[in-house]
Design a protein around this nucleic acid. Sequence first.
RNA 1: GUGGGUAUAGCUCAGCUGGUAGAGCCCCGGCUUGUGGUGCCGGUUGUCGCGGGUUCAAGUCCCGUUACUCACCCCA
Length: 450
Amino acid sequence: MAKPTPLSGFPEFLPADRVVEQQVIATLARTFELHGFGNIETRAVEPMDQLLRKGETSKEVYVLKRLHDTEGDAGMGLHFDLTVPFARYVLENAGKLEFPFRRWQIQPVWRGERPQEGRYRQFTQADIDIIGRDNLPFHHDVEVARVMVEALSQLEFLPGFRLQVNNRKLIQGFYEGVGADDTDKVMQVIDKLDKLPVEKVRELLQSDAGLDEKQADLCLQLATIESEDASFVDAVRALGVESELLEEGLAELAAVVAGCASVTSDTVKVVADLKIARGLDYYTGTVFETRLTGFESLGSICSGGRYDALASDGRSTYPGVGISLGVSRVLVPLVQKGHLTGSRAVPSAVLVALNEEASRPAADAVAQQLRASGVPTEVAAKADKFGKQIRYAEKRGIPFVLFERTDEQGATTYEAKDIRSGEQVTVDPATWTPPTIDLKPQVITKEQQS
RNA sequence: GUGGGUAUAGCUCAGCUGGUAGAGCCCCGGCUUGUGGUGCCGGUUGUCGCGGGUUCAAGUCCCGUUACUCACCCCA
């Protein structure tokens, strides 16, 4: 069979790189659970009408079809995010869930778009949401932001993050106060600011969104405002636009920024950034986008926001707030460029050397002693010359080789060799373990590799 | 969906205006008769993406096709 070629947009990791992904997922899950988020996993497919509601017909959904169905599909598609399946899950199980309901979910999602760096057709998202029945207090907006900031802070081997927060009420109220008729259109045009030059956007605000020169200018000025503290409030007020909705949005945004202040750090910043709008139209208040320092071209790697009515059955609506990290978008480029990898390709911390094939049962018994102490251990595949057995370990990154020795009196001793330093010492397999740092593969950065 | 680029060994690539395929790395063996890494010596590796055309002759030129890739759109 000919060698298969990679499938564009469906990234896969080698074992050493998968170590990075596993550790990221474990760290995120631990932080989410520290905040009381429970885990669920939803099926890969949803009915098409679920996936396409809200008129999102432009979504690039992969549709499911049985090979033997000669006409038509199964009416199901692979989910393209975790929010829509979650909304469906909440409705389906509303009677059995306690509200507000909080959950974390880390799963692959699929989008049939044209792949490029940071943009894949299958990728892993890490999602947290809190959903209420009929109402959900605003402080949960602050909470999801705090939890994600804390989770990102734990990923110490990654570059810095900049969580940019805005509020739909704020910008919508401002545009209304300015006198705009089509606030959604204004939002869409403002969203182009990082792609198009300011002058172009100014033209579009007048030609497409129907603003006069002065109105356009005010909207552009609003978009330039950003701050790491509440000082943006005064900057907005200085523009002299007034509306009730605007005030509500200002208060909420100020609360998010203030509420996150205690969890920000040198590497994870939270800023009020009034040009953030988000394309998706179901957001109604807080909106999030996140940039990875030094990798801004990847776009937003962690987004979300407040939605007041993503789910609704006849009797209740379920408002929610959530945020979603693009695990693949962050990791695949960093791993491919060689910035991150794992310290070894196998879990094994120790290789038990084999003197001759006949001594395999004895070697197995020694390995079992180590495993009982929680040390991932494997026994050499062949009773090769010791040089070859050491090289077997070296290629896999296994740090220790354990030799069995029999002296002239016939007494058996064991020696553990750290193949990085060459140091070899006598040990008791019943009690010896490698240093804690060597027990599990570690994530290593480019700087540490050299 | 629209537009550009690329396709030669496991990997990175060379192959000038057509003359029957190369380097480095990797891998294997030896020097080293049971403790690796450095060094030296030797060795393996290809339907030159696929299909067709021009030619005495095509990796090289032409047409088509597929895959990969970059940008736009959109988004994690």
